[in-house]
Design a protein around this nucleic acid. Structure first.
Lengths: 332, 332
DNA sequence: TTGTAAGCGTTATCAC
DNA sequence: GTGATAACGCTTACAA
């Protein structure tokens, strides 16, 4: 392995001068700089990041912890975060938490080991009271889901507003018996409860009542559980004419479950999702959905994190993403 | 920051003994080991990976370079690779190459900087002749696409065999005018040409001719270009009764493009894809497809890479993944 | 503008 | 079994 000393020897200067050239520091004469660059090129020298990190304490890597990278929403999120971080000269390392609280704490403990400069945590289940969160050793930004009070910067989805708009849209289209397909946990403050509140708010505003028979609980935010809910929904015979699904992924499952039972969308039932994943436009029928500005969210999270890396003591804040309602065939 | 020296002082032993305890090396008496463990617990000590890496030369991180992490296939691949690597005590860092050859070389140069122990490269465009590949400084395993000759371990898709089986299946179902929707580059040895050969082989074997009018070229492996191809296909009026799409993602676009034109699947046209992404089961209609064993591929790639990390000089080989044909509604 | 010296936290070596 | 010492490759602080 070729080191800085080798380059120094080759170009007839000291290690320090080589370091200065590499890091673009001022105070190196042009001839020397050229000699050094040439020596670097010739020798094929590469900086040893471990040594630099050991000395400087900065890794240039930020962690992104997501439940499962193979769900479209998180894949898309990761792509945006990687792009944004690159613009600031940071790399991204992805950790899968497996949607379990234990895994999420692992990501933090682990990344401690891996020496991230900071962590973006797209949390679903993590208990907000966990004390270990406080002393992770580096800044953390929460993205997209949980509310952890004032301790962390938090980039939030327009959960309540978005779901309210989606529900209101179905009502506008003439739906009167509108089902909600969502997670079962209605305690605490999280995606599920926030979106539930938005659903209720829209119903109330239009003088509709919230029938418990219209509430379809599912186990995870997966296509599979969505399909199951779609079938139950079709079998319920409750005259349901509209469905709000908690995410597009779940909506895709619902769509499939309804198709399994011969229920047509939007003819028999209208359906709307949340997230605007890339697939939504291509489903048959294409899926109407709440489209948060994902790029904005990724940019915001990276910006907040990098700010905090440079200035650890700042007031944390919540930032709610803007959204639009994308109307497609499923609610025509 | 609490270091190994602190733990040593706290437990009244030397740094070296602490190191031995942490790394589970033999030759530490039980009482001492317990004292050290307790000191670690009390102090909240964490290993500094940079220092360890600097000294040992191992990072414990393997890179995974994929064109775009937000495409379902690569998301799924990443999930499997992460899981497999974890079983061997390795972490995974994901690099996006943006499907361009330049980006793929970047991933290599870059990860040099990042000090991976090895790299799994899911290459699409990378020119096999690029000399920089040879001296990346760590082992590389090619996964899923390109063929780079005998220089690298290579875990390959059953491109030819799978596409042949898919085409034969359509013929079995009674299709006689079978279109192929695939990338335009028919030169070189890559996914596109290999799958094309499989398609031709099946036609030939059943006495059907390859009509150029049945060849629909697309620009990238995206849903968007698939949709476009689906529309052109519907508008072509060539009596097409079957479609082989180069990937499921493209097939999803084709499905949508056909729906745009009111063409019914499978009633008017039968459609089959390649990859068996999670979405395929949930499309309407659900998509028949060639299902390579993704888990097998990830496991093989990780295994080959780790073998090579431990024994750099071994004969490279090609390993073709097993596959099954999954028959769903789109070819019923 | 350039060079010297010290040390970041860990592990390999070899002595005890 | 346990410990002292010397690296690993780089950057910070300071001297020339």
């Amino acid at each position: 392995m070729v080191t800085m000393s080798d380059v120094a020897k080759l170009s007839g200067v000291s290690k320090m001068t080589v370091s200065n050239v590499i890091n673009g520091r001022a105070g190196v004469s042009e001839p020397v700089r050229r000699r050094v660059m040439e020596a670097i090129r010739q020798s094929g020298y590469r900086v040893n990041v471990s040594a630099r990190t050991l000395r400087s304490g900065r890794t240039g890597v930020i962690g992104l912890a997501v439940p499962e990278i193979d769900r479209p929403y998180f894949g898309q999120l990761a792509a945006h975060v990687i792009a944004q971080a690159a613009q600031h000269g940071f790399h991204v390392s992805i950790e899968q938490t497996g949607a379990a609280a234990a895994g999420e704490m692992d990501a933090i403990a682990h990344s401690h080991t891996l020496h991230f400069d900071g962590l973006i945590l797209s949390a679903v289940e993590l208990d907000r009271a966990d004390p270990r969160l406080a002393d992770a050793g580096y800044p953390i930004v929460m993205l997209g889901e949980q509310d952890f009070g004032a301790k962390f910067d938090h980039v939030a989805m327009p959960n309540e507003e978005g779901t309210k708009a989606a529900t209101a849209h179905l009502i506008d289209r003439g739906c009167r018996r509108i089902a909600l397909v969502t997670g079962s946990g209605l305690d605490g403050v999280n995606v599920v409860t926030r979106r539930y509140r938005g659903y209720l708010a829209a119903l109330a505003e239009h003088g509709l009542s919230a029938d418990p028979a219209l509430f379809f609980a599912i186990d995870g935010m997966t296509m599979d559980s969505g399909r199951d809910a779609g079938r139950r929904l079709a079998d319920s015979g409750g005259g349901i004419d509209g469905v709000v699904a908690v995410t597009d992924t779940v909506a895709q499952g619902v769509l499939r479950g309804l198709a399994d039972r011969g229920v047509r969308v939007p003819d028999d039932v209208r359906l709307i999702g949340f997230d605007d994943i890339p697939e939504s436009e291509f489903m048959v029928p294409s899926l109407s959905t709440v489209a948060p500005d994902h790029r904005w969210m990724a940019a915001k999270a990276v910006e907040l994190l990098i700010n905090r890396i440079h200035a650890p003591l700042r007031q944390a804040g919540e930032h709610i993403a803007p959204f639009t309602l994308v109307i497609r065939e499923s609610t025509r």
